[in-house]
């Protein structure tokens, strides 16, 4: 079964207080040198059948109408190779 990943991130201009809270905690935990953190969501979709243009179009529609709120978020659809990680 092929896997398609949808990454959803807040638009750059939208304040991300959760990312900021993570960033502020880093020095306290001994992780120095991180200037900024933005927090997003990752969806891993196990697709039945071939990941062809039609399937990708449907996934794009799904991301646009449901997985992301495009008023505040951007999304990216990526197909993971079926051979798995190299």
């Amino acid at each position: 079964m092929a896997r398609v990943v949808v990454d959803v991130m807040l638009k750059p201009e939208i304040l991300d207080p959760q990312g900021q809270a993570v960033q502020r905690a880093l020095p306290r935990l001994g992780f120095e040198g991180i200037a900024d953190v933005r927090q997003g969501k990752r969806f891993e979709l196990e697709v039945e059948g071939p990941v062809d243009d039609a399937a990708l179009a449907r996934i794009h529609e799904m991301a646009e109408t449901f997985l992301a709120n495009t008023v505040i978020e951007d999304f990216e659809v990526k197909v993971e190779t079926s051979e798995g990680p190299k």
Partner: peptide
């Protein structure tokens, strides 16, 4: 209502969390 797009904009986590 904002998710339905009956009203514009969106709601997010409070700035102070």
């Amino acid at each position: 209502l904002t998710e339905s797009h009956l009203l514009p904009g969106a709601m997010l986590r409070n700035n102070h969390l």
